[in-house]
Simulated scan of single mutants.
Amino acid sequence: MAIMERSLRGFTGAGYDKGRTLLVQAAWFAVLRLVFVRWWFPARWRPALLRAFGARIGQRVLIRHGVRVHWPWRLEVGDDVWIGEGAWLLNLEPITIGSDVCVSQEALLCTGSHQRRSSTFEFDNAPIRVEPGAWVAARAVVLRGVTVGRGAVVGAASVAHHDVAPGAVLTTGVAA
């Protein structure tokens, strides 16, 4: 087997558009770090703050402290959604979360990756969709390009690297 030689110095990020100006990106990161993630910032104000930065957020959405959202303008959340403490929505590409979804504590939804066969490790990003009624349990990971089907469960500490069928339960990487 040939070993891939990498030259990270040559990374260009070709084709990736952050979707907003550098000023808006900087403003979001300041608000995220100084206010949004803090325990003292009221949960009922977090959806409004995300909306101010371009997110589409439904009604009765609960976002706990410590939640990180990379780019709010690439986030769509339905009604009656819960996002638990420490969850990370690393949305270089869009993340769509349907209604009645629970994203539990310290879950990671990661739309970013890299081309493993690229010597310069270029991006290989893709959106994530979590359909209505699904549950992404504590410390679960949903990777780029995955759809978590309606009513499906990505169990605690599981990694969803392929679509999870509607109603399926994924535990430690095996759908049941």
Rank of each mutant, 00 (worst) to 15 (best):
V130F: 04
P127L: 03
G84A: 07
T111R: 06
M4P: 07
G151S: 03
W88H: 11
V153W: 01
A30Q: 06
R60W: 05
L108Y: 04
L50P: 01
V31Y: 10
W88V: 13
K18R: 14
G86M: 11
S118P: 05
S104A: 15
G84Q: 07
T21P: 03
R38F: 09
H114L: 08
V159L: 13
F121D: 11
G151P: 02
C110A: 13
L90N: 14
C110Y: 04
T120R: 08
V24L: 11
H161K: 09
L89N: 05
A137G: 02
R150E: 14
A43M: 14
R116E: 09
R144M: 04
S7P: 00
I128Y: 07
A165I: 00
R116P: 08
F29Y: 14
R6N: 00
N125V: 02
V154L: 10
V35I: 15
V148M: 05
W73G: 01
V77I: 15
L108P: 03
V37E: 15
V141W: 12
A134D: 06
E131C: 07
E131R: 09
F41S: 14
A107W: 10
P72N: 06
T111S: 10
R144E: 12
A107G: 07
A48E: 11
F123S: 06
P42L: 12
H70C: 03
W71H: 11
R129T: 15
T120S: 11
E85D: 04
H162F: 01
V164T: 02
E122K: 02
F121K: 01
G133A: 08
H65V: 03
L108A: 10
Q59T: 12
F41Q: 14
A152W: 01
Q59E: 14
L108M: 10
I97S: 12
A126F: 08
H65D: 15
S158Y: 10
D79H: 05
V37I: 15
V148P: 01
P42S: 14
V77D: 05
A134Y: 01
A52I: 02
V31R: 02
R139D: 09
A165F: 00
L62K: 05
F36A: 11
G112S: 15
H162C: 08
V164A: 03
A52M: 12
S99Y: 09
G151D: 03
N91T: 07
N91P: 10
V24R: 09
V101Q: 04
C110V: 11
A168N: 04
I57D: 09
R117C: 02
L34E: 10
G149N: 04
